[in-house]
Each structure stands twice: as C-alpha cells, then as structure tokens.
Design a protein around this nucleic acid. Sequence first.
DNA 1: CATGAATGAGAGTTCATTCAT
DNA 2: TATGAATGAACTCTCATTCAT
Lengths: 214, 214, 214, 214
Amino acid sequence: MGIAERREREKDIQQKIRRKQILDAAKRLFYTKGFSAATIEDIAQEAELSPAAIYLYFKNKDDLYASLNLQFLEYMAERFEGLYRDTVLSAEEKLDALKDVLYDIFKFDPIILINLFHLQASDGLKKLSPERTSQINKMGAKCLRSLSKIFNQGIEEGRFVKHNPIALGDMIWIIFTGAVLWEESKRMINPRKDYLKQTLDLAIEIMGRGIKAT
Amino acid sequence: MGIAERREREKDIQQKIRRKQILDAAKRLFYTKGFSAATIEDIAQEAELSPAAIYLYFKNKDDLYASLNLQFLEYMAERFEGLYRDTVLSAEEKLDALKDVLYDIFKFDPIILINLFHLQASDGLKKLSPERTSQINKMGAKCLRSLSKIFNQGIEEGRFVKHNPIALGDMIWIIFTGAVLWEESKRMINPRKDYLKQTLDLAIEIMGRGIKAT
Amino acid sequence: MGIAERREREKDIQQKIRRKQILDAAKRLFYTKGFSAATIEDIAQEAELSPAAIYLYFKNKDDLYASLNLQFLEYMAERFEGLYRDTVLSAEEKLDALKDVLYDIFKFDPIILINLFHLQASDGLKKLSPERTSQINKMGAKCLRSLSKIFNQGIEEGRFVKHNPIALGDMIWIIFTGAVLWEESKRMINPRKDYLKQTLDLAIEIMGRGIKAT
Amino acid sequence: MGIAERREREKDIQQKIRRKQILDAAKRLFYTKGFSAATIEDIAQEAELSPAAIYLYFKNKDDLYASLNLQFLEYMAERFEGLYRDTVLSAEEKLDALKDVLYDIFKFDPIILINLFHLQASDGLKKLSPERTSQINKMGAKCLRSLSKIFNQGIEEGRFVKHNPIALGDMIWIIFTGAVLWEESKRMINPRKDYLKQTLDLAIEIMGRGIKAT
DNA sequence: CATGAATGAGAGTTCATTCAT
DNA sequence: TATGAATGAACTCTCATTCAT
C-alpha cells in the first residue's frame, strides 16, 4: 500500500464513474429517441462531456450500446439461475416467485430491458459486430436454460403437465417480452400508470393454472 | 361517363399499382435491412424506379413506413372483428380458432407484422407524425376491442373464469407479440424452421386451460 | 439510332465531363496541398460542386486518388511500350529518343507524375486498398519491362556493355524519379524556370556514354 | 562550479536524452505509418511517454518532424564536406568513394532519408514554417555544393569532361534520390533483399564512365 | 409521369493540442 | 517534470429530399 496505490485506486473509481455517467446518459437517450436517432453528440451533451470524450471510454457507438445490453442480460441470467438453483422452493412456488423476479428485472432497468427486447429480432442486431451478437445470444440462451429447468423440475415433481420444458421456458420469455412491450406501448399514450405487475401476475397465474397436472 | 372518366379510373388504378409496387419493395428491404438502414435509394432500386419517383407516391420515408403498417393493421382488425362477429362458434371455439387466425395474420405478411411489433414501443414511433401515430393507435385499439369481446362472450357463456376481458384481450396480444418476436429471433440464428404455429398453439392451449371455468 | 440513344450518349458525355472536372480539381489540390491535406470539401469547392456530388463519381477519396495515378501510369506504359516496339530505330537511337519521351510524359501531366513518384515509396500507398496498390504496381512493372527490353536490344545489337538489362531499365526510372523530384524541389524555391529537359538530357547523355560498348 | 551548475548540466543531458528518445520513436513510426498517419499518441506510446510530454520537448508535430530531417541533413552535409575536403584522393577516387559514402548515409538512417526525399518536393514541406523550410533548404544546398566541388576538382584535374559541375552534383543527388526511393518501393512489395548498394554502385560506375575525359 | 443530378444537413470518428494536478 | 483527461475543430462519408428537364 502507499500513495501510488491509492492514486491508482482513485483513478479507477473515477473511470468507473465516468463510464456509468455515459452509460446512464446513453440509456436515457436510447430510450427517448431510439438507438439510431440518438447521436453521440446528444449523449455527450446529456453526459455533460464532449463527443470526443465518449470515445475515451467506449470504442464506438455500437460498443456503448452493446455494453448497456450485455450488462443487463448478465443480471437477468443471474436472477433466473438463482431461482432455478433454489433448493427450498417447489417448482410451483418458483413459478409463483417468477412473477416478482420478472418485475424486479424490469424495475432494475426498464429502459434497457425494452431496448433489449427490441434488439432481439431486428434492426439493431444487424449492425452489431458478430462477436457482440454472439455474446448477447449466448447470454440470452443462458436465461432460457434456467427457465426451462424450473419447468423440468415441476414435471419431474409431477405437478406440471408433461410439456416440452424448453417450450415452457420460451413461454415465459414470450410473456415477458410481450407484456413489457405492450405495457410500454400503452404508457406511451397514457403515461400515468404502470400495469405491468398486474399483467405479469395475471399471465403467469393463468399459465400456472394451464399447466397444472390434474 | 366518357373518355375522361375512363382515363381517370385507369390513372387511379395505375397509381394503386405503383403504390403497391413501392410498398412491396419497401417491405422486403425493411425486413432484410431494418427500417433505418434501408435507404430510399435501396427501395427505389428494388421497386425498379428512381428515388425521386417514390416521392410522387409518398410524402416521405416515414409516410411510406406508416402506410405499410396501417395497411396491415386494417387487415388484422378485420380478421379479429370477423371472428368476434361469428355467430355460430362458442367463445371456446373462437379461442381455438384464434390459433389459426393469428398464424394466418402472421403468414399474410410476416415482415410487416414484425415491424409493427417493433414499432409498438419505440424508435420508429417517435419519428412519425402525431397524426399517423394516432391512426395506428386507433387501429390497434380496434383489434384489442374485438379480442376482449370474445372473452366477454366466454365469460357471459359461463365458460371462462371471470377475469377482466380487456386484460384477457391484452393477453392474446402479448402472446402474439412475444411469440412472433421470439420465433423471429430464433430464426435469425438458425433460419431453418418455423416453429411459430406450434408455439402459438401451445400458448393458447395453455391459456385456454388456464381460464376455463370449472 | 433515335432520341433515346442520343440522350444516352449525351448523358455519358456529361458524366465524363464531370469526372474530368473533378479529377482536374483534385489534381490541382493534391499538388498544392498534398494528398492528405487536401480535403474533399476543398476539391468540391475547386470543382464548383458540393462534397456529396464527388461521391456520385468516385467511391471515396482514395478511389479518386488512385484513378488519377492509374490513368497516368497507363499513358506512361503506352509510351514506353511504343518506343520499345519501334522497329526502325536502333537501341542507341531509342535511348536518345527517350529524352523526349520522358519529358513528354512529364509535360503530359507534371502534377500527377510528381504525386506518383511520391506514392512510390510511402505514406499514400499504405492507405490504398490492396487491390488498387496491385493495379498500380502492375502498371509500374509494365513500364519497366519495356525499358529493360530497349537495353536488351542494345546489348544484343552489341552496342551496349553487357549489363543486366533490368538493372539498366531501373536506372532510367531512377533518373526520371530523381530528376523530376529534384527539379520540382528547386522550382518550389525559385519557380522561374524549368530545367528538367536539360537535366534529363544530360543524365541520359552521360548514361548513354557510360554504357556504350567500346 | 557548484551544485547549481552541475544540476544545470545534468538537466541538459536529461533533456537531450528525452529528445532523442522521442525522435527515435517518431522516426520508427513515420517510417511504418507515414507522417500523417502516425499520431502523437502513437509516438508517445512508442517513446513510453504521455502525449502531453512530447510537447515539453517539441513545439508541435511539424517541429518534431523537421527536427528529425534537419538532424539528418547535417550529418549528410558533413559526410560530403569531408569527402570534398580530402586532400589525398583524386576526384576519380572520390567519385568511387562516393559509392560507399552514399550507402553509409543511407545505412545511417534509411527511415529518415526516405522521408527526406519525400519531403523534397511536396506534401510535408507545405505544412512547415517558412523558417524550418529555409533551414532545410540551406542544408540541402550545402550538400550539393560539396558534391559539385568534387566534380570541379575532377574537371580541373582534366579527368572529367567539361560539364557544369553544379549539374553533375545534381546528378548525384538525383541518382541518390531515385535509387533510394526505387529500391524502397521494391522492398515494399518484396522485403527480402536490399539491392541498393548494387544499384548505387552501378549507377555511379556508369556515370563515372560517362563523364571520363578521353 | 419519371428521373438524373445535385445537395444540405448532419452522422460518427479522429487527433493535435491543452491544462489542472 | 510528467500526465490523465478532455476537447475543438476537422474530416470523410451518407442520405432524404428536391428540381430542372
């Protein structure tokens, strides 16, 4: 330890703060204007920096965008993994817990999540480097694996109807995607209230009943 | 009657043909390259016209884009309306029929449908004129109304659990959005097969069981 | 024949005129400011066009630059080839004629020639696409082949000392390069007079005497 | 005497070391990437310093570049001056010795020499301050004066044909320029071997025979 | 009706240079 | 002395859009 070391640490912290500053600004702008409409200049202004400064922290616009998404996917994968690995809850309880986990994930960063769902099927993805695309896809696959394993557990426990667990995992993803985008869309017209929790709860409730073994 | 009139009619037809020609070209390109990456020049080339000619038929690029979506929404609204208005089928049978209707809609024009779902919550929408946005929203609302009425019927018939029919209508929309985007996303990685029909069937099957009155 | 055809032809001519207009402007600017310092904006202004218009006629700045050089190299290769293929002159007479040919080439377009000699060994070349580089190199090689063949003829005629004809061809190229750059350099300080002809004459005179078989 | 004085001296030495460090780094980079493509950041990294540190030792990038060239020209002038001042050798022997001197100069710093020859007629020069340009020109003139004096001696000794000795001096310069650039150019395509010595030897051999008084 | 030609406005990105520390 | 961080000013290139013909 010593002065040099402390300096080093402080510098590192400064760097992280700046990165976050930029990522936050970018997030806001990608959300309000969309990825391609949000310019580096916009982001820089929002972050109270010069455009050139952005490039000290990110290789380019795509890198910035991908960073934002990857960061989020990692968090999401962790949450699903955590739920699946839980040894106390039954599959049914896990499905119930999923309601809160999904909403948690949404709340963790709604902006990015929406971007991510959009990214899923089009436009943006085609501009990303293959490397980045594969990173993102890999993370997405990890999420789905965890989900399907929960259903697998439920089937093995004899509480869920024998469906393909992968298909059921997909179903959660589909509900999540659809619900988030749809509620967001409604909020664009009438931004007053957030019905997402209710919508998710209902959807999973129904799904739970729909796959319960009789 | 007379020559002038016939000329007028022919002109009108010609116009419609050209418009369709352009819309078709645009559709293909928005699909392959995404909305912002597809240039007017690209579209013109695909339509075997000059870029300038596009502007004889559409006010601008966004107008072109919106036309594409509106056209599709109208078709979709019709289909839902048709199903709702059917006087022979029970609500349960209608829900079952919905499987095919949704897939039909998808098949009618997958490209636009995906675009439309993307448009739902972000990017594109913000660039459209308020007028266009409202047109699109109105059409979307019409679709959902028809869906919710089907559930209403089912509840009144005593065959569905008493949920808010609007929420159930939304649920279909959510499943449709999520499923289409998700299957599309999978196809971007591995374009071999189309699992959408199965996915939709399963989702609606499960939902149907989930809301069946006992 | 017909109107359409005439239109086509006129269009073609227009295009060529524009291209030439731009190439001429570029030439002047590359000369006065150097390749990397001359901006597209500069060139556009000099050509009395918008920067964007440049890109209608050339793929990018490097393409513009390479076009300029290739065009010239082709001319040069032709001249050397022509001299070598002459069936009337003896090798000695050809060497003598080379004095005028070289000066002719210089006069044909001094600006480009100087650029070309600079391009030869550095900076610029590294930015060009490999494809363009190879095109240029191929043309250069063709020039040298013709030159060496002239010396070969002289050696076979028994009028030149038995040196490697390729080395002698290189020698001409070396003299040409050195003389042009050096005279240009002098003219940058004192632009009054052009001593290149004298310098070339003297150099080739001396070389001729230096390789004469005794 | 005294501490202050010693400190002063040491500081001076430190400064010179750093300057050399930077010049060496710059040299390598100008060579590999060319002048305009080599960034200050590159140079700083190569010199294991920060970009800002460069500016403690050089006014700006052009100053750095000019320093590099001047340094070299001084060495070159010395070598030519030395040869000219030699009182033992005949002019013919000096011309012969020139073969080695030129190659020596090349070997002393090929990188800079090539840069210098490029600088001669274009691009770079135009960006330099008039002051720097004149410094460089003065040094160049000195070199040529020495060369011409060697030929003058030969003519006075009656061993060389009566040509303008200045023109003959230029000839050496021309051969040197041309040969170095040409061999470098060949090495850019096929970096295996260095034929410069042979080329210079042959060129001067031929020139020597070409101007020998009979 | 159709278009070739042109462009204004702006995008992302780079880099020599400065300055507080 | 040395530097990390920052930036202003440019640069190349793109594209939706217009207009004379």
